[in-house]
Design a protein around this nucleic acid. Sequence first.
DNA 1: CCCCAGGCCGCGC
DNA 2: GCGCGGCATGGG
Length: 225
Amino acid sequence: MYLIKVYEKLYNAYGEQNWWPVDKEYHTKNKSDPREEIVIGAVLTQNTNWNNVEKALENLKKINALNFKAIIKMPVNDLEEVIKPSGFYRLKAKRLKNVCKHLYPVDVVERIEREELLKISGVGRETADSILLYAGKRPYFVIDAYTKRLMLRLYKVNGSYEDLRKLFEENLPKDVKLFQEYHALIVKHAKVHCSKKPSCEGCPLANNCQYFLSSGEYLLTSTGI
DNA sequence: CCCCAGGCCGCGC
DNA sequence: GCGCGGCATGGG
């Protein structure tokens, strides 16, 4: 089944996800740039539940620091306390300051090369592509643990990050909004049905899924997927 | 008590 | 190039 058909099935099942920016009004009130919130969120959510990230974002908002300038200026110890709920807070405080510095002013995300982004300490492939796609509105497909698991189950495809990214980018129209929604839908789907312990009942992709169609033997041989 | 979450880095091999 | 330990909070 084509990847665009998978997208349509997910879209019909879950609807628009509209991930970023989370708070559309905050930015008009505070005359800040939503792209900065996206970059900050992308760093804070590394291996972290979005619920925890939201707490950290709220803390930043309260002190008017949900922007690059404030984060660059803030002493790292203070930043640690503010973002503590998002976990790995000592690590992330350093990464955040570093990323904000390199992407200041935020228009940089419109033109920076992917390779240059990846040189920034604290920015790996997924964070880079999230920044490019959601803040820079550029057609890079974001791959994450959920996407890898879905591809493995759906098609028995097991590839590296770059393999999978190219698979999506070469088999879909290069449409930013499509890429944004598709990635968000995969995350949603992985939470609802395609979790580590899958719940295939009612899954919109079940009829096209290799895992579901051969679940007996697969379950026994694929612990940890 | 356990496991997990929208990864990344530095290291050894 | 790949696998592994460390990083930390909050929810189930």
